[in-house]
Structures are given as structure tokens and as C-alpha cells.
């Protein structure tokens, strides 16, 4: 879509920013399961329902948003909002994405403080801790398998080195991450590492 088309689209939609805020807010408020569930819904709203963005552009932006640091859902909202209406669009979509969890979680956390020390709630939480452990182990397993399949030495060396440095020697995570980022900047710009 060209700039003129986007500008016309914004003019033609009554209360554009309010519509944008409302649709993004509702998706963030009721979607359980994180960014990879939220993004297809955002796409369906912006592209299919309102026609505010075209499909190819959305895919491109979302794929960049996924590789950027931060929360994938927020990154996507930021980039899509920016494309639709510049900085004002970005602030609208970002605010609409972070407000619902801010409200929901604040309420839930009060309940957590009230009930976390109850004996029976502790039993249930203990069970859920095991569930969460299984989930994170599975995530780690899938990521490792995917990386191993690529048969690249440098990423594997980074994984092994970072793990040992962090787990066995307790070296500061931020320090390790900066170091690995610099290694990437120096040696991993090739397309095979993408």
C-alpha cells in the first residue's frame, strides 16, 4: 500500500484511532497463549476485516518483529501500528496491547498474595510448577533439536559456552548475552545463520 492510500484509509475510517485501539485491546485482553496466537488474530483484524494493511507487508513486518528483542506480540503491534499511522499508530497499538495484561495481572496478583500460602492452593501450585517445568524443558528440547539439525558449529559453541558459563560458573546473564551478540555481529552475518 502506498502512503497516499494509507492516508486515505485513515481519513475514510471514522474514529480510526479509537477503532484501532479497541480492536487491538480486545485481542490482547482475551487471547490466552502469548504472541504466536495473538499475531494471527491481529493480522485477521487489520488485513482481512478492516483492510488497513496488505497481507504481504504484514507478513514481512511480523517476521522482522519476531526476530527483534522484546515481546513478539508488542513488537508486531509496534511495527504494524507504525506502518498504519506512524508514531501515533504505534503508541495506540502498543498501549492497547499492554493495558489488558496490566489490568488483569494486577488483579490476579492480589488474589495470589491472598491465597498463595493456603495449604491446598500450595498443592495445586506445586502441581502447576511441575507442569511449567515440563513446558520449559520441552521448549528447550525443541529449540536445541532445531539448532542441531542446522549443523552449524558457531551457534552450538555459543549454546554450550553460555550454558556452562551461566549454570556452572554463575556468570552474569547480561554480560554473556552482550558477548554473544558481539560474536554474532562479527561472525554471523551470513544468511545461513538467519
Amino acid at each position: 500500500m502506498s502512503e497516499e492510500e494509507l492516508a486515505r484509509m485513515r481519513r475514510d475510517t471514522p474514529h480510526f484511532f479509537w477503532e484501532l485501539f479497541k480492536s487491538t485491546f480486545l485481542i490482547s485482553a482475551f487471547t490466552v497463549g502469548g504472541g504466536f496466537v495473538i499475531i494471527p488474530l491481529l493480522r485477521a483484524k487489520y488485513v482481512d476485516e478492516y483492510g488497513w494493511l496488505d497481507d504481504k507487508e504484514t507478513l514481512n513486518l511480523v517476521s522482522i518483529a519476531q526476530s527483534m528483542p522484546g515481546v513478539v506480540a508488542c513488537n508486531s503491534a509496534i511495527m504494524l501500528g507504525y506502518r498504519m499511522a506512524g508514531l501515533a499508530g504505534t503508541l495506540t497499538t502498543l498501549l492497547a496491547t499492554i493495558l489488558p495484561p496490566l489490568i488483569t495481572i494486577s488483579i490476579i496478583s492480589c488474589f495470589y498474595d491472598l491465597f498463595a500460602h493456603n495449604e491446598y492452593v500450595r498443592y495445586a501450585l506445586k502441581g502447576m510448577q511441575c507442569g511449567a517445568t515440563a513446558i520449559i524443558i520441552n521448549v528447550a528440547y525443541d529449540l536445541l533439536k532445531k539448532q542441531l539439525k542446522k549443523k552449524l558449529a558457531l551457534p552450538m559453541a555459543i549454546i554450550a559456552g553460555t550454558f556452562v558459563a551461566n549454570y556452572c560458573f554463575g556468570i552474569n546473564i547480561m554480560l554473556l548475552v552482550v558477548l554473544d551478540g558481539l560474536i554474532g555481529l562479527a561472525f554471523m552475518r551470513g544468511a545461513k545463520y538467519n
Binding site: 521448549v139 529449540l143 551478540g181 558481539l182 560474536i183 555481529l185 561472525f187
Partner: peptide, 17 residues
């Protein structure tokens, strides 16, 4: 992209840890 390519394996290690 290079920077991000270096960060991705680091994050895998941290998730394992």
C-alpha cells in the same frame, strides 16, 4: 541481523539453564 543471530543461541542456552 548478525547481532540477533548471535543472541538466539544464547537465549537457547539460558532457557536450558
Amino acid at each position: 541481523r548478525g547481532l540477533l543471530n548471535g543472541l538466539r543461541p544464547a537465549v537457547i542456552a539460558l532457557i536450558c539453564s
